[in-house]
Design a protein around this nucleic acid. Structure first.
Length: 200
DNA sequence: TGCCAGGCCCTCTTTAGGGCCTT
């Protein structure tokens, strides 16, 4: 099975278009559902972190002030990710920050994102919520650390993906559940998974 | 203090509105 890169950003807010910046990034490279390499770093973008965000993530202005420059971290994590296809929970969010922070170091994204939240809505339609933490509890996944820290959330998203991989392998007898299949799943209309995967 | 964005998805829909997710 090809390698996938599960990524998570912590940021100062929701929108890079409104000046929000990344404060931490973590990537877990997974093969056959198992983590094989990890990258994590706080990053200093030289901007203030609002108090409510510091309370949410536990990442303070002092922590980020002592961290490497955002530009250096983005070059490093971009080299780490290479061309591996990306996965994130609510990937539209992480994709916006990945693209925006890469653009600041004159780089471009070279691969597609799959979204574990869109996949979970289809594979786990009866979960009470599709928040990462709620899905982790629903699937009884082992704890990875403090929620809303990049490393813990990337590890949890990787575990969730492995959990959903096993379900699809079991229910549809598809041996090689790869990134292309996940992209197909997230484009599948909600409720139509069985029809779409039955003949895969 | 409360809000901000953007895309998906459902419904009391499609000439729209609002909840869910991410920080």
């Amino acid at each position: 099975m090809a390698t996938m890169a599960v990524i998570d950003f912590e940021t100062t807010g929701l929108s890079p278009n409104r000046g929000d910046r990344a404060t931490e990034v973590a990537v877990v490279l997974v093969e056959n559902g198992k983590p094989v390499r990890r990258y994590q770093s706080l990053m200093n973008a030289g901007v203030n972190i609002p108090g409510r965000i510091q309370a949410l993530t536990g990442i303070t202005n002092d922590m980020v002030a002592a961290a490497p420059a955002a530009s250096a971290v983005m070059r490093e994590v971009s080299d780490f990710v290479e061309d591996f296809p990306l996965v994130a929970h609510n990937a539209a969010f992480d994709q916006r920050f990945w693209d925006a922070e890469l653009a600041r170091v004159k780089r471009n994204r070279r691969q597609e994102f799959a979204c574990s939240m869109l996949i979970a809505r289809r594979v786990l339609p009866h979960a009470p919520s599709h928040k990462l933490g709620e899905l982790a509890a629903f699937a009884k996944l082992p704890a990875t650390g403090r929620f809303h820290r990049a490393q813990a959330d990337a590890e949890m998203a990787a575990q969730l993906l492995a959990y959903m991989t096993k379900l699809v392998q079991r229910d549809y007898r598809i041996r090689d559940v790869d990134h292309d299949l996940w992209c197909r799943v997230q484009r599948t209309p909600v409720g139509a998974l069985q029809q779409v995967l039955a003949d895969y």
